[in-house]
Amino acid sequence: MQLTQAAAARFAAGLAALWPEDERSGPLGLAVSGGPDSIALLLLAHAALPGQIAVCSIDHGLREAAAGEVALVERIARERGIPFTALSVKVGPGNVQARARAARYAALAEWAQEAALGAVATAHHADDQAETVLMRLNRGSGLAGLAAVRARTQIEDSDISLLRPLLGWRKAELAALVSSAGIVPAQDPSNTDITFDRARLRQHMADADWLDPAALATSAAHLAEAWQALAWYAELDWHEMVMRCDNADGTASYAYCANVPRLIGIETIRAIIAALGGHASRAEASRAWDRLWAGHNASLGGVLGVPGVERVEKVGVQMRVWRFGAEPARGTIN
């Protein structure tokens, strides 16, 4: 059974909002696991973009059934004349779901580059988004975390655009599309394994009929817009209030006129640390901000921040100026 024209048009409109036609430089790659959500993504994209998609399915080597799921996706793609690629990844020890996610996205980025794809899409939907928001609220996440799954971003350590065109769709809608096509999707047992936080939350949400996943997903979209605005201001802060200094020994340091709200300053501190070759999480940068604001030195990511007050010529007034440079080696006496 063919998808309805209304469903295909809805998907095409949502995709165009994320990925305008004049920005497209190659086919759309689809990450398809064999579950109902990702098969629905395949069916919708095939209806909306015939001849302009490619499909990839990844075996993480964690379950015996995974090879069969990859084969299912291959059959569905081949029946529709869609280019298909099967990949295998190795998942390192530690947090299995986090490691699998990192390995998966690294493999997708490599595939996209080799296949000259214009972007990659995944099947995250409104119910996934609602779960993510609630999990992060429960963990005390800040604005960046509460913005949850972004509709458009980039795969980490690559320039590949990552799209989530199904964030406005409910899981039940997607399952119905797959069922109407006569396809029996795979079911990943980890989705109901309550040893995983997400599966446990999903179970509780099913019993809380007063929760509206679509409304939670909408709130996440609003938070993402707020985060985008904050990130824009932080970029402006970097360009306007951070000055690079070239030291006599050939190294660089930075002077930061810290005169913005704390959330923005945290992002600027992270940018300074990165410019000096280090790395700092938002939690680490927030602790550094608090120390510097209180008049204490802050050390993080191999960088030392020293607070002070100086007259800033460009504005002609005394300002809080924090100077950042490579942290001296331990035992160094000034």
Rank of each mutant, 00 (worst) to 15 (best):
S25I: 07
S219N: 08
F324G: 01
D157R: 05
A220N: 05
A130I: 10
R78A: 15
G316A: 01
D188Q: 09
D159P: 00
G14F: 06
Q97F: 08
D159T: 04
F196K: 09
E313S: 09
S57G: 12
D246E: 15
A17T: 00
N191W: 11
I183E: 08
G92H: 12
N334K: 01
R244A: 14
K90Q: 15
M135K: 13
E79G: 09
G14I: 06
E327T: 02
A275M: 03
E21R: 09
R63S: 07
A208H: 08
A66Q: 15
R150D: 12
H296E: 11
Q52C: 07
R323E: 09
A86Y: 04
G308D: 02
A234S: 09
T192F: 11
L134R: 11
R99C: 14
A12M: 07
E284T: 01
A151G: 13
A255F: 11
G14P: 06
L42I: 09
R24K: 12
L292K: 00
P307M: 01
K171A: 04
E131K: 05
S161G: 02
A45W: 02
R202C: 10
I53V: 12
D249V: 03
K314A: 14
V315H: 03
I82A: 12
L28Y: 05
A147E: 04
I264N: 03
R152L: 10
Q113K: 13
A229K: 05
P50V: 08
D188N: 13
C56N: 08
I272F: 02
H279V: 04
I264M: 09
A126M: 12
L223H: 04
G51I: 03
R291D: 00
P213G: 00
A231I: 01
C257M: 14
M241Y: 13
A77H: 04
R136C: 04
R262C: 06
L15N: 03
L143Y: 07
A54S: 11
G277V: 00
L216Q: 05
L166K: 03
A294E: 07
I76H: 11
Q2D: 12
T218P: 00
E69S: 07
H204V: 12
A109V: 09
L216R: 02
D37Y: 08
V91A: 10
S25W: 01
L134E: 13
G51E: 05
L304P: 00
G61N: 10
S88C: 15
A255Y: 10
A221E: 09
V317A: 13
Q129L: 11
D127E: 07
D59M: 07
E23Y: 03
L28E: 06
F324W: 10
S33W: 04
H204L: 14
A12G: 06
D193L: 11
K171L: 02
K90G: 15
L263P: 10
L174K: 02
G316N: 01
A67G: 11
V91Q: 10
G118V: 06
S286G: 07
C56T: 14
L292W: 00
V309H: 10
R202E: 11
L108A: 14
A13Q: 15
L62R: 04
A102F: 04
A112R: 07
L201G: 08
E267Y: 08
